[in-house]
């Protein structure tokens, strides 16, 4: 029997969002098909992987992912340069985890200074993340937005509790923002609606439906992302058309599978490779679900995911 492939045409399109300035500018999104369905439409931009760096040394990262950055992780500027020059990072995500009240509790001014220094050192796009403490993030990210004025950074993450302040600062200083909600397509959509109702352009948003690691709720993130993409493309739902973020590293490198030594769990195999695989598998699954921007940690995992992306294009 002759076969005619049933190709789909989608009514919607993911916004294409440019980040960074000058030569380093990158673009995410822009496709009018499901992830890697280039056989039935256009997907002009590859997904972008950002290397995660921090404002304070990564004391809580497991050994295997600390090691590659040993020489540079005491200083965010060195760390950023290393990612850009040695690892050929396409983007860098600076997590201001040191501002968390239970951590170093660094001030918003300190954070702003770090942002300035890192920006001066690299030319790839910069994602600036708070410490995920809704209350503290508000002043920290306002200061960071100001420090990075007009550099077209991605500021995150705006949540229901603090989106007003963060979105206003990002708007005033010409940045993009990440809107994060808690693993539910409706909550994600609601937050996007609330933010755009403040006058923030929806073309400047990046949606983070909340990540989860392989084996720790990945299926929820996977399906929420898949549903968001379908809503954007098949229902032309404008509130679901921003590109999506998978904040992979921080979820992966805290689960048992990336930390437990082989000696304790012989049937789990080599820790080093297991950890890298955990991050790479989580990342690839979310790419297939629809993430366009990833934040990752281990250079080897990034390299392998990048290789897979090339094979998918």
């Amino acid at each position: 029997m002759a076969f005619t492939p049933a190709k789909e045409t989608y009514s919607g399109k993911v916004y294409s969002v440019a980040i960074g300035t000058g030569e380093g500018t990158g673009t995410v999104g822009g496709e009018n098909v499901l992830p890697f369905h280039s056989f039935e439409g256009a997907a002009p931009n590859r997904p972008v992987i950002a290397f995660e760096i921090q404002d304070v040394p990564p004391a809580d990262w497991p050994e295997s992912v600390k090691k590659p950055f040993e020489a540079v992780s005491d200083d965010p500027v060195k760390w950023a340069r290393f990612c850009q020059d040695e690892l050929k990072a396409k983007a860098i995500a600076l997590r201001l985890v040191g501002t968390h009240p239970d951590r170093e509790n660094r001030s918003a001014e300190d954070a702003a200074k770090t942002v300035k220094d890192v920006l001066a050192a690299v030319n790839v796009p910069l994602i600036i993340l708070g410490s995920n403490h809704a209350e503290k993030d508000a002043p920290v990210l306002v200061a960071a937005s100001e420090a990075a004025k007009d550099k077209n950074c991605v500021i995150g993450k705006a949540q229901e509790a603090n989106y007003k302040t963060i979105a206003a600062a990002a708007m005033a200083n010409n940045h993009k923002i990440i809107a994060m909600s808690e693993l539910d397509i409706n909550l994600s959509k609601q937050l996007n609606i609330l933010i755009t109702q403040m006058g923030f352009e929806k073309e400047r948003l990046i949606t983070d439906p909340m990540c989860s690691a392989l084996g720790y709720g990945l299926e929820y993130t996977y399906s929420v992302m898949e549903r968001i993409r379908l809503a954007a493309l098949t229902q032309n739902d404008a509130t679901m058309q921003p590109p999506m973020l998978g904040d992979i590293g921080m979820y992966v490198w805290k689960v048992k599978e990336t930390q437990a030594p082989e000696a304790d769990l012989p049937h789990w195999g080599s820790l080093e490779e297991r950890g890298i695989a955990w991050e790479a598998v989580t990342a690839t699954a979310l790419l297939v679900a629809g993430a366009e921007l990833l934040i990752m940690r281990h250079p080897k995992a990034v390299e392998e995911v990048q290789k897979t992306i090339e094979e998918l294009i």
Partner: peptide, 14 residues
Amino acid sequence: MDEYMSALFLPHTN
């Protein structure tokens, strides 16, 4: 639950 979450908005998420 999905219908419920999407109805937890005025008038509705959709």
